[in-house]
């Protein structure tokens, strides 16, 4: 049923700390690995994986952005992105077959692959690029929040968390109930000023992002004053070396 359920009390989701993420892509690999061996659906296929133009299906990807403040040095921010399990999920309501659905109990957005016709409309409706059509299976793939891990009593308790969260070496990914204001993830969001992506579109994403903490603006590094350029005054040993080496064959300007 593609009618959205009333907002659930439990809203399972991720909190991603942009201050802590080091951009190692371990979450991407863990996600690909778990969801390729999972019984939940078709494996995440690759096309031409060892050829000249490899492509493949991924449910989690890490972008990197450069942010230049008015004052102070430029920062690089690594930015993991997967399904945000929106409360007002347009990917669910556009689905013509009922394959896309949002669970009433915990708010997880899933695809029933047996009913998916592979029309791609749900991916059109998603502003975040969270859904990818699998070229081999012909069905839409998306983050399941590792629904086959988080409730899986066959796994040790420590592993009952999404594969991306379990593997993150920096502790930049947190999993929990964002519907409960007292949960650890909700407290983290409140404390750090967690925000929504593209709030103006009104999708009400459940996943939240924590902003990078403010950086020092006065100085790039305490060693910076000691690293002033040398040898540009045309005097001394360095300058002589520079001139002499420049005369050798193969020297650059």
């Amino acid at each position: 049923m593609t009618t959205l359920p009333p907002p659930s009390a439990v809203k399972l989701g991720l909190v991603i700390d942009l201050d802590t993420c080091v951009g190692c892509h371990a979450c991407v690999v863990a996600c690909k690995g778990w969801n390729t061996q999972s019984d939940l659906g078709a494996p995440l296929s690759d096309q031409d994986p060892f050829g000249a133009a490899p492509t493949g299906t991924f449910l989690n990807r890490v972008h990197s952005y450069e942010v230049t403040p008015e004052k102070g040095p430029t920062q690089q921010v690594h930015f993991p992105k997967s399904c945000l399990h929106c409360e007002d999920a347009p990917c669910v309501t556009v689905c013509p077959t009922g394959a896309s659905y949002k669970r009433a109990a915990d708010g997880i957005v899933l695809v029933n692959e047996d009913a998916c016709i592979g029309c791609g409309l749900c991916a059109w409706a998603c502003p975040y690029g969270a859904r990818e059509m699998d070229a081999a299976a012909g069905v839409m793939k998306k983050c399941t929040l590792c629904v086959d891990r988080i409730y899986n009593e066959a796994l040790p308790e420590v592993d009952r968390t999404p594969a991306c969260v379990r593997t993150c070496p920096a502790g930049a990914r947190h999993f929990g109930d964002l519907g409960d204001p007292d949960s650890a993830v909700s407290q983290l969001v409140a404390e750090r000023g967690g925000f929504d992506l593209m709030p103006e579109l009104g999708m009400k994403p459940v996943n939240k992002y924590l902003p990078p903490r403010p950086r020092d603006v006065d100085q790039i590094d305490v060693l910076a004053p000691l690293l002033a350029p040398v040898g540009s005054d045309g005097k001394g040993l360095i300058a002589w070396l520079d001139r002499t080496l420049s005369k050798l064959p193969g020297a650059r300007d």
Binding site: Y65, E66, V67, T68, Q75, P211
Partner: peptide, 12 residues
């Protein structure tokens, strides 16, 4: 990205 508050954002 929600990073606009910090400064100018560019896909790196």
């Amino acid at each position: 990205t929600g990073l606009g508050e910090i400064g100018r954002v560019r896909a790196f």
